[in-house]
Amino acid sequence: MKKDDNKELNKVIDIISKTCEIDKKNIKESSNLLTDLELESLDVVDLIVAFENEFNIEIQDQDIKNFQTVGDIVNYLKAHV
């Protein structure tokens, strides 16, 4: 993994940890949002808004279904920010 990839990943992990009150050490790039992090729909929307505010983007509703893992979010942000 490149240094920039780590930076993006760490930022995403920071936001998930802060928004959803999950210990950072339990959040990995491969973590599934629903099955591993046990997020509910309300948490997911809360996260989407947190990412939108942090990265100054608008995440389209139809893209949400592609966010299965933390890595999916990192890849989406790298492509759209």
Binding site: S41, V44, V45, D61, Q62, I64, K65
Partner: peptide, 22 residues
């Protein structure tokens, strides 16, 4: 408000991708 919207997108079978504002 939240449970109404969530139950409706689950009824539609589309989930959050439908857009809760819709």
């Amino acid at each position: 408000m939240w449970v109404k919207k969530e139950s409706y997108v689950k009824y539609l079978g589309i989930g959050l991708s439908y857009g809760l504002k819709n």
